[in-house]
Amino acid sequence: MPEPLDGFLLAAGLGLRMGPLSCCLPKPAWTLRDRPLLQWGADAMRRAGLTRLGCNAHLHVERLRAVAEGIEVCEEPHLLGSAGGLRHALGRVEAELLTWNADVWAETVPFDRLREAHRSARATLSWLLIPHPGGRWNPVWMDERNRILPKGVVGPQGPFHFTGAAAWSPEALALLPEGPSEVNEVLRPRLAGTPGGHLGVVVDPFAWREVGTPEALIEAAAALAPLQEGRLPGCYVHPGAHPSGRLTACILGPEAAPPPALTDHHALWFEEGGSQVRLGLP
C-alpha cells in the first residue's frame, strides 16, 4: 500500500499561459531566490507540520522530478484537471489533505488556520480566502454560515479571492469522478449535497503572487529577487544562466548563454542538447 499523504501540490498542466517558457521548464520548476516554485509551496506545508507531500506532473516530468526533493511525483500522462489531479491521493488520506497551487509564490501560508477551521466545522472541502484584491480574479461569495456559494451567485459575504490553498476531507476526494474533472464544473455542485459542505476560511492578506506568465515571472524576479533572478533589470535570469549582451524583457533559462555582442529583446534563451535555443516571447 502507498504511504498516506497529508499535503499535495498541484503541478500538472500544459503551461499555455507561459507560452514558449513551457518548452524549457514546467511552471513549478522556475525559480525565485534560487528556489523552485514547487519547493516554496512545499516549504510552506512543512512549516505547518506536513511531512508526506506529493505532486502531480504532466509537462517535462523528469525536469519537475529533478526539483521535487522530498516530494512524491505522481505522473499524469493524460491531464486530469484542477479536481481530477487529486485522484492520486484517493485512499491515501487519513484526516485531511492540504493542497496548494504550485505556480504560486508565497513565503508563508496560513495552513494552520485553514486546517483548524476545516476540522472545527467538519467541512467536506475548505478554501483559504482573502478579501478580493480587485482585478480579473473571479470573486467568491459566501452565505451567512461561511459556506461558499455556487460560482456566479452573489451572497451576503464577499467578494473574496481563493488563494489556492484548500483542505480536502476523504469524503471530498471520494466525490471525484473517474477521468478528468474541474473543481467549478464538477465538484462544487456535488458539494452542495454533503453534510459538511464547502467552507470558506477568510484570513488577512498575506504575501502571495501568481507566477503564471512570462511577464509575471520577470515582475516577480524584480520584486522578490533583485540580486538573483532579477539581477539583470527588466529580465529574468535563471540561477544556471550566463547573461551577456544587451538584453531587455528577456528570460534566460537553464544554461542560457547569449552571445556577448548580442542585442535582443522579448526572447527566451536556454540550452538544449548542447545548443543555445532562442524563442521569441509574445
Rank of each mutant, 00 (worst) to 15 (best):
residue 219 E to G: 06
residue 220 A to D: 07
residue 26 P to D: 13
residue 57 A to N: 06
residue 37 L to R: 01
residue 172 A to M: 11
residue 225 A to V: 09
residue 164 G to I: 09
residue 25 L to P: 00
residue 141 W to H: 03
residue 107 E to C: 07
residue 134 G to P: 00
residue 147 R to E: 13
residue 134 G to V: 00
residue 229 E to T: 07
residue 61 V to H: 03
residue 129 L to P: 00
residue 249 A to H: 08
residue 158 G to F: 07
residue 194 T to E: 01
residue 120 S to T: 14
residue 8 F to M: 13
residue 22 S to T: 15
residue 226 P to H: 07
residue 198 H to L: 15
residue 74 C to M: 13
residue 120 S to E: 14
residue 87 R to M: 14
residue 175 L to W: 00
residue 212 G to Y: 00
residue 143 D to F: 08
residue 221 A to S: 06
residue 129 L to A: 05
residue 81 G to H: 02
residue 148 I to V: 15
residue 135 G to H: 03
residue 261 A to D: 15
residue 104 V to G: 03
residue 66 A to W: 07
residue 106 A to E: 10
residue 98 L to I: 13
residue 161 H to C: 14
residue 221 A to F: 03
residue 177 P to Y: 06
residue 232 L to E: 02
residue 50 L to W: 05
residue 11 A to P: 00
residue 153 V to E: 14
residue 223 A to Y: 07
residue 84 G to A: 11
residue 135 G to D: 05
residue 2 P to W: 09
residue 227 L to G: 04
residue 281 L to S: 04
residue 237 V to I: 13
residue 159 P to H: 08
residue 16 L to S: 11
residue 245 G to I: 14
residue 261 A to C: 13
residue 162 F to E: 14
residue 33 R to I: 09
residue 159 P to A: 12
residue 155 G to L: 02
residue 8 F to W: 12
residue 61 V to G: 03
residue 265 H to V: 11
residue 105 W to S: 08
residue 39 Q to V: 01
residue 197 G to Y: 05
residue 111 F to Q: 01
residue 130 I to S: 01
residue 231 R to D: 03
residue 202 V to I: 13
residue 138 N to A: 15
residue 127 W to A: 12
residue 214 P to A: 13
residue 207 A to M: 12
